[in-house]
Nucleic acid binder design. Sequence first.
DNA 1: AGCCTGTTCAAGTAGACACTTGAGCACCTT
DNA 2: AAGGTGCTCAAGTGTCTACTTGAACAGGCT
Lengths: 228, 228
Amino acid sequence: MDVGDHEAKAALFDGFAQVAKALSTGRRIELIDVLEQGERHVEELAAEIDQSVANTSFHLRALAAAGLVRTRRDGNRIHYRLASPRVGALWAALRDVAIAHHDELDTLAADYLGDRSGFEPIGRGELARRLDEGDVLVLDVRPHPEYAAGHIAGAHCIPVDDLDRQLAELPDDLEVVAYCRGPFCVYADQAVRRLSAAGRQARRLEDGFPQWRDAGLPVAAGAGAGGR
Amino acid sequence: MDVGDHEAKAALFDGFAQVAKALSTGRRIELIDVLEQGERHVEELAAEIDQSVANTSFHLRALAAAGLVRTRRDGNRIHYRLASPRVGALWAALRDVAIAHHDELDTLAADYLGDRSGFEPIGRGELARRLDEGDVLVLDVRPHPEYAAGHIAGAHCIPVDDLDRQLAELPDDLEVVAYCRGPFCVYADQAVRRLSAAGRQARRLEDGFPQWRDAGLPVAAGAGAGGR
DNA sequence: AGCCTGTTCAAGTAGACACTTGAGCACCTT
DNA sequence: AAGGTGCTCAAGTGTCTACTTGAACAGGCT
């Protein structure tokens, strides 16, 4: 019987392993995490992961070779995007396993994110309800291009670096909810800390924009709604 | 602000990457695929993945270091098992992405599994219904230890290597459904081919035992029900 | 055409990793 | 205690991989 020999099985599972290998360095996972927010071009991505453009291009090619990422040419820019939402689901599954079972991850996360114990996040369902009622101010504190690529309907675009500058212009009668890329993104935490320090009532959204979008909750796109 | 610097972010994402790296070779994914059926000891696992015991032990240690696998001592045997169903979910997500986006995987799968186009599998729901009605013969064609660790309630244990020997003893008035480890396991395909060649009406279950179990459908454990 | 910008490619280096072989260690049996 | 079984550890080898630097190659602008 020529079906089912060990050599072919090894080759097949090595094929699966190639996909895992594409995620086997932190830089490439950072790229996935950013690309889950929407498509970006190489220079932006290089800045996001704090690497040279050449190295970033190399990593993007590796992701593309594994089928995780696709490209689109626009003028002389090349935009990268995730091949499908499945890739985001894989990244989420990886996160879940790592946080649940990898012992060092708690301390690594605490080193990066700081102590979150004092800050209770707000759930997606509750935020959706309160957005309907209009008694909450939602801030998208990710970088501009990610807001433009897609954001929670009704959210205002204030990247965390611009927050201090625009603090005074915020209406002061509403509780503030900040959100960013996902559960291991630091932007919303930074925003909540600064808002709290300024005496505002502020919480972060559990998870981030991709999870809101994938849950089928209302989203909008374009730079339109702008700051403030 | 000491929260959110790039070095800590790199360290955190390298932590996630370590989990992916644990899955970055085909041998370790084969181990995960077997361990999803139930716990096994090192010698059995070495035979399953066709590697030396030393190398298998090395790979198991790597999986344990990433938190994917746990051990239990029983006499002078050490049994390995998945750390939680989350690990199975990660392996499923990896499979989905690979099959959907990695171009070479179709041909690798075809090389190992052969041409499946002539064999329409039966769905879980339909099989559950027909098991209730008692008008189907369900064969677990995985190796004995996996049947003992857990199987579809009402299934009979006939490892694919023993199938030809026991063909004549099967009641011949029922359609046969064979199942094994999952969508990329070859045992059920081999069983269906042999049953069909013997003139029996036979289909394979979509997916395999872990998916049946995780769907909450009825299972049983122990070597009890035996062959036939 | 020529320059500029954005991206990829190539060469080189340091480190990591899979697998083999042979020795060591823990626990069991007699 | 002595021997056996099951697993891990250590040394060694060949291969692969991440990142750097510097050059090449597109497409758009003037």
